[in-house]
């Protein structure tokens, strides 16, 4: 079990890229923080989620 945006999720073993895609996120519009460190945009496919992780995903809306 790990926490994504404050909610408990069964996502251990998935990569960040897999989780984002399966949850319907547009990868170009997100910022991902894993255990208080930013996951570089080029490393989503090689970063694996583990039990106990704290993940924050911010998906941006357009306009300014």
């Amino acid at each position: 079990m790990l926490k994504i945006n404050g909610e408990e999720k069964e996502a251990a073993g998935q990569t960040v890229a897999d989780y984002l895609a399966s949850s319907g996120f547009n990868l170009a519009r997100v910022v991902v923080e894993l255990n208080e460190a930013i996951v570089p945009k080029g490393r989503y496919a090689e970063t694996t989620l583990r039990d106990g992780d704290q993940v924050e995903i911010v998906c941006f809306m357009g306009g300014g």
């Binding site: 547009n26 170009a28 910022v31 930013i38 945009k41 911010v58 941006f60 357009g62 300014g64």
Partner: peptide, 17 residues
């Protein structure tokens, strides 16, 4: 303070990294 969502995500992720 960009307008496009993709540019926002690029900047924020890049600066924090």
């Amino acid at each position: 303070a960009f307008d496009r969502a993709e540019a926002k995500a690029m900047l924020v992720s890049g600066v924090l990294e």
